[in-house]
């Protein structure tokens, strides 16, 4: 790996390596318009507003590492398995190239960052997915890292906080990726049976095999406003049914109404909300009564 990719220059004026597809930045002024309401915005005002539009609350997509900055106490996060990478178990066409490109684009080795940190002083195992790495898809390395994190948390009596963003299982690893659903779900179950609290923060979008495994198994399911949460993606459903989906379908707000989310929490309040929950759960671990 060359040094350049380690110390990547920001690609646009919005933020570092966290590109936002819908954002067109004016090359001359560095200004841009909000994809939500069209209002002209300054980079700094977006940054101080937790990467959301101050006018309409449109949420810009942020990388997995910045998430950790929002939630963990400064300097408290210790990463596990930072270098773990997936093999190409099926020698799938162009997969190796795609992995290389994803590493370049995201500055990460894989689609999830795992470790332990403190949240307002409460020790917690944390994972944070990264949409810039092959749309946060789950292959063997993602499955293994998350499984190991839950096993560590079980062993060390820690709660787990997971921030999800994912298109689902990583197709290029075939059935190996599908089986990661069972593997991670099993690790979550063991942690739960041992008395561990697991909080999920669903962010935009969380779909497919990730929703249908560890993302829907939280004791408490939180979501960001407007986050899309579903099993099948909206386009797939539209194509299958040959009809337009109702407005707001699969949004956090409608998923809340359907009963699959406990609360919707805005970015600036997430850390304190999670802290309150940890406090109410005795720090997030209570030895199971047998």
């Amino acid at each position: 790996m060359n040094l350049k990719s380690l110390f990547k220059q920001p690609q646009n004026t919005l933020e570092g390596t966290e590109s936002e597809q819908n954002v067109k930045v004016n090359a001359k002024t560095g200004d841009f318009n909000c994809p939500g309401c069209g209002a002209p915005l300054l980079r700094t005002e977006v940054r101080v507003n937790y990467y959301s539009c101050p006018k309409c609350d449109y949420y810009f997509r942020i990388g997995g590492r910045r998430r950790l900055d929002f939630i963990c106490d400064k300097g408290s996060f210790k990463e596990f398995d930072a270098d773990m990478i997936s093999h190409d178990p099926l020698t799938f066409p162009n997969y190796s190239e795609k992995l290389d490109a994803a590493r370049q684009k995201s500055g990460e080795k894989e689609a999830v960052i795992c470790g332990v940190g403190k949240i307002n002083g409460y020790p917690c195992a944390v994972f944070s997915m990264d949409a810039n790495f092959m749309m946060g898809s789950m292959g063997a390395a993602v499955g293994e890292k998350i499984t190991k994190l839950f096993e560590y948390a079980t062993e060390n009596k820690l709660p787990v906080l997971g921030v999800t963003v994912s298109g689902g299982a990583r197709m290029q690893e075939g059935m190996v990726s599908l089986v990661q659903m069972a593997k991670t779900a099993g690790a979550v179950k063991k942690h739960s049976d041992a008395g561990g609290l697991y909080i999920v923060l669903l962010t935009n979008p969380t779909t497919g095999g990730v929703t249908a495994s560890f993302a829907m198994l939280g004791d408490i399911e939180l979501a960001e406003p407007g986050a899309l949460v579903g099993f099948a993606g909206p386009r797939v459903i539209e194509q299958t049914l040959r009809q337009k989906l109702p407005d707001g379908f699969q949004s956090a707000e409608s998923t809340l109404k359907c009963g699959y989310i406990d609360a919707i929490v805005e970015r600036p309040h997430q850390k304190n909300f999670i802290t309150a929950l940890l406090k109410m759960h005795n720090g997030g671990f209570c030895d199971a009564v047998n």
């Binding site: 495994s213 560890f214 829907m216 099948a232 049914l241 699959y260």
Partner: peptide, 20 residues
């Protein structure tokens, strides 16, 4: 794959089965 299946928690139902 349908509206009702999503609204009734297709992902949650599958996830629950995997864990259980």
């Amino acid at each position: 794959c349908g509206i009702e299946a999503e609204e009734h928690g297709q992902a949650e139902a599958i996830a629950r089965n995997l864990a259980e």
